[in-house]
Structure formats: structure tokens, C-alpha cells
Design a protein around this nucleic acid. Sequence first.
DNA 1: CGCGGGGTTGAACATTCTCAAGAACTGTGG
DNA 2: CCACAGTTCTTGAGAATGTTCAACCCCGCG
Lengths: 239, 239
Amino acid sequence: MRSEDIQIHAHNCHNDKETHKACVSLVPIFNHLEEEQMDEIMVTAQSVSYKKGEIIYRAGEQSDSLYIINNGKIRIYRLSESGKEQLVRILNTGEFTGEHALFSESTHESYAEALVDTKVCMIKRADLQEFLLKYPSISLKILTEFSTRLEQSEKQTTRFATEKVETRIALFLAECKDSEEGKSKEIVLPMSKKNLASFLGTTPETLSRKLADLEDQGFISQKAQRKIEIIDLDGLLLV
Amino acid sequence: MRSEDIQIHAHNCHNDKETHKACVSLVPIFNHLEEEQMDEIMVTAQSVSYKKGEIIYRAGEQSDSLYIINNGKIRIYRLSESGKEQLVRILNTGEFTGEHALFSESTHESYAEALVDTKVCMIKRADLQEFLLKYPSISLKILTEFSTRLEQSEKQTTRFATEKVETRIALFLAECKDSEEGKSKEIVLPMSKKNLASFLGTTPETLSRKLADLEDQGFISQKAQRKIEIIDLDGLLLV
DNA sequence: CGCGGGGTTGAACATTCTCAAGAACTGTGG
DNA sequence: CCACAGTTCTTGAGAATGTTCAACCCCGCG
């Protein structure tokens, strides 16, 4: 990054086209764009950096931007009516959030917190909408992404509604295994057990016990450092 | 409806432009269309009727249409990995389903069953996509609708993850009250208690007991015919 | 009038949470 | 590199919550 860029914007806010393009080209909804389209949307983007622990947005705040993670890691969580926290998802480099406010002109309902030092790239609602009207095929891409997320969210709801904790854990481990490309039987949990408990709608204590149970039954083997070896996938899924 | 139309199509499948327009004009994502646009999309639509109890689509089936309810009532439900059923939503006249398959070229993950004799209006994926590319502003409408649904689904997930059954019931009753326009304190449950239990991720027995508890505590009063009087809304929400 | 489904109630049981205490790990400053 | 502080994680015991199964009621409908 050139030093002039840093001086132009207050705080930690820059506008570096190359960085934006590198970032955005990772995002599924944008990575099929042509060069000129990419450039066109990128000139409207802004970079902002957050330190570990900083809150990027809160429930109730007005919002009008899409946030794409340039590098870093963000935790999205909600507070229920009775004040309990649930982890909704962890975002890594190339993923995005803020989509609701983008189209609904409403306020955030969740919280976004930087888990490590994180740099995001923001695109304003007005800019994106204009862009979508100009290139309609991109809307179809986003619609596809949205409907997939909706489907996943409903599946998750059904799991909470009908499966007991042990099953939810087993299903989670199985999905981790699916998404790890290598054939190795070992998976790495994408978050701390504390956060995983929150994601799965249970407590750290119960999660710890259920993992121990699954280990006793010979389905998995817990290693150091969030690593778990899946010994018997089929057995795991019959829990 | 003209009799020629009926003869053209086998079974119970018609193509009656006026019916379609009457139906589609109720749908939030279409009701802002101009006359000619409405006509244009409607000529591609098809009507199909289902008898009470018939399955409109099943999980695993290929699908490529949006279903809009012309009149009647449909129950959307899912089966979890372990085979338990959860009611996802009840659709009434003017509401739609099938949106996932519309953009993802995938199979259904849920089941749709006619709760009463029902007439739906179907629009094919290819027709709708062509239409959206021609009129990009409609995509923005649909994106708005999708992102709202996604937000709601995530809220629901968080409730299942963090609230106990009694609270989920109380929140449901409160939302019923919100959506009933009249100022009357009496609400009418939109489904049987058996279905409501499935929707709320519990059993009919527990639902029955919790409602009795809420009544004992003086927050509500159960009348005949799925009617419930909300006596103390604030108290209800502190449960 | 009897049938059947929805709804309710009771009692035993299963699951999960809470609280508390201790162990293991992580990162930081010396 | 070590010691310490602040976590995260684990384990135990008891309490709270919810489910299951079985019996029964009630009402609408043929």
C-alpha cells in the first residue's frame, strides 16, 4: 500500500483499488464479473480496518453497506429476546455480511465482532443497487446465494427444533468433514468449543460431555488444538 | 373461466389469464408491476388444483417452478435427519413457495401439502429469469423479500437455540397479536395445536401444559375454537 | 350412535442446564 | 524462556426442563 493512500483518509479508512479487487474477486457473487465491471464497482468501495475485539456493527444500528472481508475473521451473533447470545456464523476472508440492510433499508439485527485484526471492504447500498440495475445478471447470482442461505437457515432451524444436542454435534462434525477437502480423517474445528456450543444452541459443559461420550463410543478421537479424528462416520450419524 | 381453456389441458390444469392476474396481484413481489408487465409474466403461468391432503411437492424432487396460492391453504414441512417432522410455515392465499429451486437448479428440501382444496398458479424458472433480466428492478424487490425472510429465519433459529419452550410460545402469541389488525385482545391460532407444537419444536402435550400454565398465571385465557384472549401481554413477554 | 382425531392430564423417564471447582491452555511481560 | 493471569475446557452433582407413553375426554361427523 502506498503511503499517500494512508494520509488521504482519516483513521484507518483507505481506498486502494488493487486491494479491493483482490478481495472481491474471492466472493462468489462477484467472481464471475468481467474486468470492467469489477473496476466499476470497486471504485465505489472503501476499506476499513478493525482491531481484534472491535465491534463492526451492532443490532439496532442503521446500516447501508455490504461488508466483504479482505482478510481476518468476524463473528456474527444475535441476542435473543431474553438476552442470550447465539453465534450465527464465523466469516473468513472472502465472505460477506450486511446483506439484509442492503435491500431492506432497515437496521441490523445481529452483531459483528472482529475476532482478529480484520480489514473489510465496504460497498454502499446505493452504489450496489445502481450496479445491479445496470447488470441484471448479477442479481440472479445474488438471488441464488440468498436462496441457498435461506434453505440452510431453515434446515438449521429444523435441526434445533427436532434433534437433540448429541445429534446436532454429530451432524456438525460430519459437515466439517465434508467441507475439508483432503481425504484425511482429521478435521479442525473452525472455532473454539465455547463458540461452537453457542452456535449449536447448547452450553460448553454439555458440548464437552457429549464429545467425551462420542469418544467413549469410539466414533471420534479428540486430539490437541481443536483437531478431531473421525473414526466411524456412519456410527456417528446414527447417534 | 371459458370452457375452451379447460379442454386444452389435461387433468386440472388451466391457463386463465384473469385468474392469474387476480392471484398474482396479491403477491408482494409482483404487486407493483405495471399492467403490461403483469400480462407478460402471466401468459407463462399455469394453474393447478389440489385436493385436501394431496402433496404438491416432496423433498428430493426436481423442481423448477414458483408456486403462488390462488386460493386455499398449504402446509410446508421438513423432515430432519432423524426423521422427525417440523412445520416450517402455513401458506394462505396470495403467498408463494418454491423459491429455492427457482434460482438454484436443485431439488426440494421440504414437503408441501394442501390442507384444504387448493388452487395454485405456477411460473417456470426459465420464464421468470428471462423476465427478471428484462426488468431488473423486480429483482431488487425479490432480493428485499428474500433478505427479510432470511432475517426472520435466523431470528427463529436463535429462538430455538436459546429460548425455552414456554418463552417460544409466549413470543408466538405476541406475534399473533401484532399481526391481528383489530384492537381486540383475542387472537385466533392460525393452525391446530398439533401443528403449532410442530412449528414451535415441541410436542402437543408440552404445548397443552404450557398454555395451561400461562392461563394459571393470568396472562391468557383460552376460549373455544383456537381462540385465545391475551390478558397481560407484558407479563407474557417476561416469562 | 359410534368412530376417530385432536386435545388434555398424569407419572416415569431422559435430556440438558446450572453452579462450582479444578485442569489445561494461551498469550504477555519480565 | 519462564511465570503469571486470564481464558477456555472439563468434570461432578443436583435441579430444571421437556419427552414419552398411556389413559381419557371431547367434539364433529359419518
